[in-house]
Simulated scan of single mutants.
Amino acid sequence: MSANKPLVWLPACHRNLDLSDPGGYTVLADRYAAAVCELGLQPVLFPMAGAGDVPELLPLVDGVLLTGSPSNVEATHFGASALETDLLDPRRDRLTMALVRAAVGTGTPLFGVCRGLQEMNVALGGSLYQQVHAEPEHLDHREPQDVDLEAQFAERHEVILAPGSAFADWAGGTRARVNSLHGQGIKRLGTGMVAEALAPDGLVEGVRVATAQAFAYGVQWHPEWRHNHIPFYRRTLQAFADACREHCRQRLGPCR
Rank of each mutant, 00 (worst) to 15 (best):
M1T: 12
P6R: 09
L7R: 13
V8Y: 10
L10M: 07
C13S: 15
C13K: 11
H14L: 01
R15A: 06
R15E: 14
L19I: 11
L28Q: 14
D30H: 02
A33K: 06
A35T: 11
V44Q: 05
V44H: 04
L45D: 04
M48E: 15
M48H: 15
A51N: 11
D53M: 01
V54C: 10
P55H: 10
L65W: 12
S69T: 13
S69F: 03
S71I: 02
V73Q: 06
F78W: 13
G79T: 08
S81E: 15
S81Y: 02
A82E: 13
L83K: 13
E84L: 14
T85G: 00
T85S: 15
D89M: 09
R91N: 08
M97W: 03
A98V: 03
L99M: 09
V100G: 07
V100W: 10
A102W: 09
V104L: 12
G107V: 03
L110Y: 08
V113F: 03
L117F: 11
N121K: 10
L124R: 06
G126N: 05
G126H: 07
S127W: 02
L128D: 08
Q130V: 00
Q131F: 04
H138F: 14
L139A: 14
D140I: 01
R142K: 08
E143Q: 15
D146G: 05
D146I: 00
L149K: 14
E150Q: 12
A151T: 14
F153V: 00
E158R: 13
I160V: 10
L161Y: 05
A162V: 07
G164T: 05
S165A: 06
S165V: 04
A166D: 08
W170S: 08
W170H: 14
G172A: 12
A176Y: 06
R177P: 01
S180K: 09
S180E: 12
L181V: 11
Q184N: 09
R188A: 13
L189P: 00
G190D: 06
M193P: 01
M193W: 02
V194C: 05
E196W: 04
E196H: 10
A197N: 06
P200M: 06
D201W: 08
V204H: 11
R208V: 07
A210G: 11
A212Q: 06
A212N: 04
Q213L: 09
A214R: 12
Y217E: 03
G218L: 04
V219E: 04
E224D: 10
E224R: 05
W225T: 03
R226T: 01
N228Q: 15
H229M: 02
P231A: 12
F232I: 02
Y233Q: 05
Y233N: 12
R234E: 11
R235F: 05
T236C: 13
L237W: 12
Q238D: 13
Q238V: 01
A241C: 09
E246A: 11
E246G: 06
C248M: 05
R249G: 01
R249D: 01
G253V: 03
P254M: 01
P254A: 12
C255A: 15
